[in-house]
Design a protein around this nucleic acid. Sequence first.
DNA 1: GGGCTTGTTTTGAATTACTCACAATAAGTG
DNA 2: CACTTATTGTGAGTAATTCAAAACAAGCCC
Lengths: 158, 158
Amino acid sequence: METAPAAHQPHWDAALRAAGRRVTRQRLAVLGVLERTPHLEAEAVLREARHALPDLTLQSVYVILTDLTNSGLLRRIEPPHSPARYETRVGDNHHHAICTSCGRVEDVDCAVGHAPCLTPSWTPGSRPMTIHVAEVLYQGVCSDCLGLAEAAAPELSS
Amino acid sequence: METAPAAHQPHWDAALRAAGRRVTRQRLAVLGVLERTPHLEAEAVLREARHALPDLTLQSVYVILTDLTNSGLLRRIEPPHSPARYETRVGDNHHHAICTSCGRVEDVDCAVGHAPCLTPSWTPGSRPMTIHVAEVLYQGVCSDCLGLAEAAAPELSS
DNA sequence: GGGCTTGTTTTGAATTACTCACAATAAGTG
DNA sequence: CACTTATTGTGAGTAATTCAAAACAAGCCC
C-alpha cells in the first residue's frame, strides 16, 4: 500500500512538475481545495485544507498561494474591502462579480469578445500607457442577499 | 480682514453643505489637494495638506477620506498591491490604468459607450447577480517606465 | 457675537492581512 | 539510501487602516 494522501488528481502533479515545482502534499491540498471551491481567501483555504493536512499553517498557505500564483497555477483576485481570493481557472481572461453584501464572488465571461476593453480611450490630459491586461470587476448584489434585503426592508426593527 | 484659511474654492463649501457635512479646514484642504493632484494615497494627501495645515494627522485624513467617499464627494480606487487612492472626479463611470512598475494611475474614459460591460455573460454554473457598477482596471507600463526598462535591459549592472 | 449642541478631529491603541528570517523538514536525484 | 536544496514551519514584524474616547470647533439660537 502507498501513503495515499487523500484523493489527489494526478494532473496537479504534472502541472507542478511542468512549472518546475516540487510536488508536496501541502501544494496538492491547496490546489485541490481551490479546484473544488474557487474564490476562497487564505484563511478559508487553510480551514479546508486542514481536513486533509491538520498541521498545515496559515503562513505556509500564504507562501504556497503566492508561489503558485507566480507560477501561473493560480490566479489571485483582490476585491475591495476583502482579503485576496484565489482560483485555479487561469489562462482565460474571465472576470468576476462580487456581491457587495455578502462578498460572494462569481465568474463572468468576457461580454464583448475576448479582449473587451484592451484599447482604452484616454482621458484628455492623461499620459497613455502600454496596457497588458484589463480586468473588469462587477459589483452588485447576489440573489440570496437581494431576497434577504427585500424581506428585511419593510420593517427595520428586526 | 478675515481668517482667510488659504485659497479654498467656494464650490467645495457648497458641495460639503449639500452633502450635509460641516465645512472644516481639514476637509477643504483634503479636497483641494485631491482636486489639484488626483490619485494620491492617504500618506501623500497628508503630506500635501500639511503645507496648509501643519497639525493635520494621518488618522484624520483617513477619517476624512472615508467620510467624503461615503458622501459621494470622493471616489476611492483600490489597485492591487497599493494603498487606496482617491480622486474628486465622481459621477461619471470612468476607469483607471495603473502602471505595474511605478504605480502611477491615469484616468481612462469608458471605451464602449457609457456602460460598457454592465450586462455580463455569466459563466455556466455561476449564479447571476444584480449588477450595479462595472469597474475596469487596466494594468500596463507607463511611458516613463517603459523608457527606463529599455535603457536598463541591456546591462543589468546599473 | 457669545454660548450651546453635536458633528469633527485628535490621540493612542488595536486590528487585519500579509511578509520575513531562519530553523526544521522532506522532494527528488544519483 | 544518502544528499542537496526546495519547501514548510516557527516566531516575530510590518503596512494600511480602524476604533474608542477625549478635545475641539461649526453652525445654530438668541
